[in-house]
Design a protein around this nucleic acid. Structure first.
Lengths: 115, 115
DNA sequence: TCCTTTATTCAAAAGTTATTGAACAATTGG
DNA sequence: CCAATTGTTCAATAACTTTTGAATAAAGGA
């Protein structure tokens, strides 16, 4: 079951930029980007903050229209809304991710990043 | 005389995104983008807020590394740091501006926007 | 059913940002 | 020098955001 999220055509630029402007959320987005295809749940982001704080940041990303979350049992599957974002703000997500991915803060554990 | 601004290699992605995430500042950036080449001073942005509030937002943009401001008498010349931003975050400013420029909020007066 | 896992909600506290008006500074022109 | 123009700084306040811990919820397995 899909958690509530804005329709593609209602994604707002300022809201997206504000959501991406937080270092924790930028790190989260970078991490998701480096793990596309891998099923991610919330607890995989515990490095980025406490469980309850993560819930807050992940909700922000979802409400901004940056991520999508699907319920699967007690877990969530989190993914980037690449197609929707690219359609609405062409090039934006790619450029942010390309820059974010270089940030030392993002270079954490368990990712299939090419070295 | 150039007002204080971060060196190109010290421009921070999260700071830039946060600065761009405010609707007033996004409008200001869109306006500058639509008037590149035209000398802009602060009072030309008065549509976007009070004088004192503009001073605040323009300082935010400058401190984030998005704009450059030069003193000329009692006026300032304000411009986008396109080269620096493009070097540091390729494609980011272009995609933001391309999207911002479509926002109805931005379609104000005196600009050479192609209709 | 009961326990564990996974994640959210709530209320409080702490921190940050935006907005305002009054006072200030610096430059230009008469 | 005086006044006008242009923009900044300051202090106050209002509004929002982030972080926290405790309580809650919902699903799945023993």
């Amino acid at each position: 079951m899909l958690l509530p999220q804005p329709a593609a055509d209602q994604i707002d630029l300022a809201t997206v930029l504000t959501a991406l402007g937080d270092p924790t959320r930028l790190a989260i987005v970078g991490y998701i980007a480096r793990n596309e295809g891998v099923p991610l749940n919330c607890s995989q982001f515990l490095d980025f903050g406490s469980k309850t704080n993560l819930s807050y940041h992940l909700a922000k990303l979802r409400e901004a229209g940056i991520t999508s979350a699907e319920t699967r049992g007690t877990s969530r599957f989190i993914s980037l809304r690449r197609t929707d974002l690219d359609a609405r703000f062409p090039g934006l997500l790619d450029s942010v991710i390309a820059s974010a991915i270089k940030m030392p803060f993002l270079l954490r554990d368990s990712a299939p990043a090419s070295p």
